[in-house]
C-alpha cells in the first residue's frame, strides 16, 4: 500500500437479484406492462365509485353506531347456528383427521395407505369452503347441517396435513427405542408417537376452531346456515347498522377465541 493510492469516489450497491443488466431491464419492463394491463382491465366507473362513497360513509356510520336490537332474533339464531356448527365440525373434523393424519405419515404406514390418505388431504385442501358448501347445500338442503359437513371436510385437509407432517418430523430415535423393546404397531403409536404430537394436535384443533368460526360467518352466504346468512340479508337490505353489529360480534368472538385458545394452550402445557 503506497501513500499515493487513490480510491474510487463512487459506489453503487450491486443488484441482489438479476445481475445481468439486460435481464433486469426485461423483467422490469414485463412487470410494468403487466401492471398497466391489469389496471386497464379494472374498468373503473368513477361516477359509480363517487356514488358509492356516500354509501360507504353510511356503512362506517352503521359500524360506529351498530344496531343490535332490531334484528336481534335473526342475529341470535345465526350466532347459535354458527357456534354450534363450529364446535361440532371441529370435533368431528379432528376425529376424522387423526386416522387420516397417521395414514399420511410416510414413516408409519405402507405406501398404498399413504397415497390414499394424502389424496384425501390434497382434495380437501384445494377446494374452497364456499364451493364445497354450494354442493353440500344442494345435497342436504339449506341449513346448518350442510355447513357442519363443509367445515368438517375442510378441517380434515388442514389438521390431517399438519399432523401428518408433524409425525414425519418426529424424532426417529424415540420410535426406534420403543420398537426395540418389541412393541407392536399400536404400542409404538401410543408410546412413541402420541406423546410427541399430542400438544401440537391440541394446538392445531384450537386454531382450527378459530378458523371454523370465521368460515362459518361466510358459508351462510350460499345457504349453509350461520351468521353469514343473517349478514347477507342485512347487507342486501342496506341495513348497515345491523350489518355493523354482526361484524362487531364476529370480531369480538374471534378476538376472544384467539385470546382464549392461547390461554388454554398455555394451561395444557
Amino acid at each position: 500500500m503506497s501513500l499515493e493510492t487513490t480510491y474510487p469516489t463512487r459506489w453503487r450497491r450491486p443488484p441482489r437479484m438479476l445481475r445481468d443488466r439486460r435481464w433486469r431491464f426485461v423483467v422490469q419492463g414485463a412487470v410494468l406492462a403487466y401492471l398497466v394491463l391489469a389496471m386497464g382491465s379494472l374498468d373503473i366507473e368513477w361516477s359509480r365509485v363517487v356514488e358509492g362513497l356516500a354509501r360507504g360513509q353510511r356503512f362506517v356510520e352503521g359500524f360506529l353506531q351498530p344496531d343490535f336490537t332490531s334484528r336481534w332474533s335473526d342475529i341470535r339464531q345465526g350466532l347459535i347456528e354458527s357456534l354450534t356448527m363450529t364446535l361440532t365440525a371441529t370435533v368431528v373434523g379432528v376425529l376424522i383427521s387423526v386416522p387420516i393424519g397417521i395414514g399420511g405419515a410416510r414413516n408409519l404406514v405402507p405406501a398404498p395407505v399413504y397415497g390414499i390418505c394424502r389424496t384425501i388431504i390434497a382434495v380437501s385442501r384445494s377446494l374452497q369452503e364456499i364451493i364445497i358448501a354450494i354442493f353440500l347445500v344442494a345435497m342436504f338442503g339449506f341449513g346448518p347441517l350442510a355447513g357442519f359437513v363443509t367445515l368438517s371436510f375442510a378441517s380434515i385437509g388442514f389438521i390431517a396435513k399438519l399432523l401428518a407432517d408433524d409425525i414425519e418430523e418426529i424424532d426417529p430415535r424415540q420410535v426406534e427405542a420403543i420398537r426395540a423393546t418389541g412393541a407392536g404397531w399400536w404400542q409404538v403409536l401410543h408410546y412413541a408417537i402420541q406423546p410427541q404430537v399430542m400438544p401440537r394436535l391440541i394446538g392445531l384443533s384450537l386454531y382450527r376452531l378459530d378458523i371454523n368460526f370465521r368460515e362459518s360467518a361466510v358459508i351462510g352466504i350460499v345457504g349453509a346456515g350461520g351468521i353469514g346468512a343473517t349478514l347477507n340479508t342485512a347487507i342486501d337490505r342496506y341495513e348497515y347498522d345491523s350489518a355493523g353489529a354482526i361484524l362487531l360480534i364476529v370480531i369480538v368472538i374471534v378476538m376472544l377465541a384467539e385470546y382464549g385458545s392461547s390461554y388454554l394452550r398455555r394451561f395444557l402445557q
Partner: peptide, 25 residues
C-alpha cells in the same frame, strides 16, 4: 445510498487499511 464522494473514498481507504478492499461488495 448516494453518499458524498469523500465518504466513499474514505470508506475504501479504511477497508484497504483493515485488509478487506476486495470484499467491499
Amino acid at each position: 445510498r448516494r453518499f458524498p464522494g469523500r465518504d466513499i473514498e474514505n470508506a475504501y481507504r479504511l477497508l484497504d487499511r483493515v485488509g478487506l478492499l476486495e470484499h467491499a461488495d
